[in-house]
Amino acid sequence: MEFGPGSAAHLVRLEARSGALSGPTANLAPGFVQANLAILPRALAYDFLLFCQRNPKPCPLIGVSDAGAPIIEALGHDLDIRTDVPRYRVWENGKLVGEPENITDIWCDDLVTFAIGCSFSFEEALLASNVPVRHIEDDTNVPMYRTSIETVPAGVFSGPLVVSMRPMKPQDAIKAVQITSRFPSVHGAPVHIGNPAAIGIADIAKPEYGDAVRIQEGEVPVFWACGVTPQAAIARVAPAFSITHAPGHMLVTDLVNANLSI
Rank of each mutant, 00 (worst) to 15 (best):
136 I>V: 15
123 E>F: 09
103 I>F: 01
124 E>G: 09
39 I>H: 03
223 F>Q: 05
209 Y>I: 02
64 V>R: 07
111 L>W: 02
117 G>V: 01
244 T>Q: 01
203 D>S: 11
93 N>W: 11
99 E>A: 14
257 N>F: 02
28 L>E: 03
182 R>C: 14
28 L>T: 04
45 A>P: 11
180 T>K: 02
30 P>R: 11
30 P>Q: 11
57 K>T: 11
90 V>L: 13
61 L>V: 13
57 K>E: 13
194 G>L: 10
142 V>K: 05
78 D>A: 13
240 A>P: 00
98 G>Y: 06
123 E>I: 07
232 A>L: 04
197 A>I: 10
134 R>M: 14
14 L>V: 11
154 A>Y: 09
210 G>H: 00
79 L>M: 15
78 D>V: 09
116 I>G: 02
37 L>K: 00
144 M>Q: 02
252 V>M: 08
192 H>D: 12
24 P>A: 10
56 P>E: 07
15 E>V: 01
231 Q>R: 01
51 F>N: 04
101 E>G: 15
75 L>E: 01
54 R>I: 10
122 F>R: 05
146 R>P: 05
197 A>L: 11
134 R>E: 13
96 L>Y: 14
177 V>K: 03
159 G>Y: 03
28 L>K: 08
25 T>D: 09
63 G>N: 05
195 N>K: 15
211 D>A: 03
71 I>Q: 10
38 A>I: 07
216 Q>A: 15
130 N>V: 03
229 T>N: 00
19 G>F: 08
198 A>D: 15
20 A>N: 12
97 V>C: 12
111 L>S: 05
97 V>Q: 13
21 L>A: 04
234 I>N: 02
262 I>A: 13
186 V>Q: 05
94 G>M: 09
31 G>I: 08
175 K>R: 15
77 H>M: 06
23 G>N: 09
91 W>L: 13
15 E>M: 14
89 R>H: 06
237 V>T: 05
79 L>R: 01
147 T>Y: 09
